[in-house]
Design a protein around this nucleic acid. Sequence first.
DNA 1: TGTTATTTGCAATAGACTTGCAATAATGCT
DNA 2: AGCATTATTGCAAGTCTATTGCAAATAACA
Lengths: 140, 140
Amino acid sequence: MLEPTIGQGLRATGRRMTRTRKAVLALLERTHQPVSASEIFSQLQEADVAIDLVTVYRTVNVLKELGLVVQMDLHQENQSRYELKEGRKHHHHIRCQICGKIVDLLLCPLKKLTKLIEERTQFVVDDHTLEFSGFCPKCQ
Amino acid sequence: MLEPTIGQGLRATGRRMTRTRKAVLALLERTHQPVSASEIFSQLQEADVAIDLVTVYRTVNVLKELGLVVQMDLHQENQSRYELKEGRKHHHHIRCQICGKIVDLLLCPLKKLTKLIEERTQFVVDDHTLEFSGFCPKCQ
DNA sequence: TGTTATTTGCAATAGACTTGCAATAATGCT
DNA sequence: AGCATTATTGCAAGTCTATTGCAAATAACA
C-alpha cells in the first residue's frame, strides 16, 4: 500500500489524490509486467473503473514526474510501458519477439551476460540494445 | 559506391534499382549520423531530389529487409533512425539529452564501460538502456 | 457546506508511420 | 530501339500513440 505516502508526495507538489490516480496506482501495484497506457486503460475498464485514456496518460506522466514510475520504450514496440519504481533496483528486461512477453533481468553487467541470461530465463537471445544517454560536451 | 552490389541484391529478390532508391542510398552513404525518415526526406528535398515521404519509408524498409540498413529506436525519441550497415561492426550510440546529438560508441561490453565512454566521448553519462530480445521458451 | 484550484472527460489535434490505388518507370525480351 | 510486364511511386486517406483546449466535475480545506 503506497497510497498514503504517495498522497503526501502529490500534495507536496500541489496535486491531489484522486479516484483515478488511486485506481492506476493500484493497478500498477498488482501488475508484475511493465504495462502500456492502453493496457492500463482496458484493464481498468474490465475492472469497472470509469477512466478515460487521456487521464491514464496524464496520470502516468504525473507519477513519472514524482519519480514513482519508470517509463520505458522497448525496442520493436511502438508504445511506452510503465512500471512502479517502488524499492526496485535498476534492472533490464527481455522481450520475446514473437509473443511480446516481457521478463525482468535482475542483472546488469553485460560482458558474459548473454549466456547467463539464456540460462536463467530460458530465452534464446537473438539481439540486444544498449543505449546510453547523458550530456555532450557542449551541453554540460 | 555500393550501388552495383546492392542492385544485384535487389534484383535477386525481384526488386529494382530506382532513381529514388539510389538517392536514399547515396544520402545514407554520405551521412555519418543515424538519420530519421523525415530527415532523409527534407535533406533530399534540399538537394532537389523529388521524393515523397512515403517512398522514404518504403525504401528504408526494403533496405532493412535486404540487411543493408539498421533501424534503431533510440530512447526518448519518437521516431526511428536508420544507418547503413556496410562493413560496420556492431556498435552502440550515445545521445545527448539536450541537443539530440548522436555519437557512435565503438565498444560494446558494458562492465566498466561508463567511465571509458565518458573519457572517449567527453559526454557525461547520465543513464543507459540495455535491452535484449529473443525467443521465450514457448516460442522457440 | 461552500470556495477554489486541480483534475477529468470529451473532442480535436499532432506526429510517425502505413495502406489503397491509379499513374509511372524499370527490366527483360524481341 | 520498342514493347510488354511488373515493380515502384505519389497522392490521399487512414492508423495508432500521445497531447492539448476547455467546460464540467471533484478534491482539499476553511
